[in-house]
Computed example of a mutant assay.
Amino acid sequence: MPYTTEEGGRLNNFAREPKVYQAEPPTEGQKRTYIIIGIAGIALVGGLISVAFLVS
């Protein structure tokens, strides 16, 4: 653990920093999956709103 000593002899414990990397753009398969999940989410929310409207 990376400890540092401050004035007065107190120890400070700092978290380790994660490695930095450049993000990669999504592949065609990931883009397709995002679109399908988005459409399913919109359909779910639309269905819930219509059920709430019909019940009330």
Rank of each mutant, 00 (worst) to 15 (best):
A15Y: 09
Q22N: 06
L54K: 05
N12W: 11
G41S: 10
Y21Q: 08
K19C: 03
L54R: 07
G8W: 04
G29M: 01
T27F: 02
L11H: 07
Q30F: 08
P26D: 06
Y3A: 06
K31N: 07
Y34H: 10
I39N: 01
N12R: 15
V20M: 10
T5E: 15
G47T: 11
I49H: 03
A52K: 05
G9S: 04
I37L: 15
R10I: 10
L48G: 15
L11V: 07
S50W: 11
E6P: 00
G38Y: 01
P25K: 10
I37N: 06
E6N: 15
T27K: 07
P26M: 14
E28H: 04
T4P: 02
A23M: 13
R32E: 04
V51A: 10
Y34E: 11
I39R: 02
R10V: 11
I36Q: 04
E17C: 04
I37V: 14
P2Y: 12
K19D: 08
M1W: 08
P18C: 03
A43C: 10
E7V: 05
A52R: 07
I42S: 06
L48F: 02
V55T: 09
E28A: 09
V45K: 02
I37T: 10
A40E: 00
E28C: 01
F14E: 11
P25G: 05
G47Y: 01
R16E: 13
P2R: 08
E6S: 11
F53K: 11
E6A: 12
G8K: 11
I37E: 08
T5D: 10
P18L: 02
N13K: 15
E28R: 09
R16S: 13
G9T: 02
F14S: 13
F14Y: 14
I37D: 06
E24C: 04
E7H: 09
F53E: 01
T4F: 09
G29Y: 00
L48Q: 07
G38L: 03
E17I: 11
F53Y: 12
I36L: 12
R32M: 05
S50G: 05
L11Q: 14
A43T: 04
G47N: 06
S56E: 08
M1A: 14
F53H: 05
I35D: 00
L54V: 03
L48A: 12
A15T: 05
R32F: 03
A43L: 13
P25A: 11
Y3V: 06
T33P: 00
I36S: 02
I39E: 00
A40R: 02
V45L: 09
F53L: 13
I35C: 01
I42K: 03
A40Q: 01
Q30G: 02
E24M: 09
E24H: 03
Y21P: 00
F14G: 06
T4V: 12
Q22D: 10
N12Q: 13
A43P: 00
V20T: 07
G46Q: 03
G46P: 01
V20R: 12
E7I: 03
T5S: 11
G9F: 09
P18F: 02
A52I: 08
I35S: 00
P2T: 03
Q22S: 07
M1S: 15
Q30W: 09
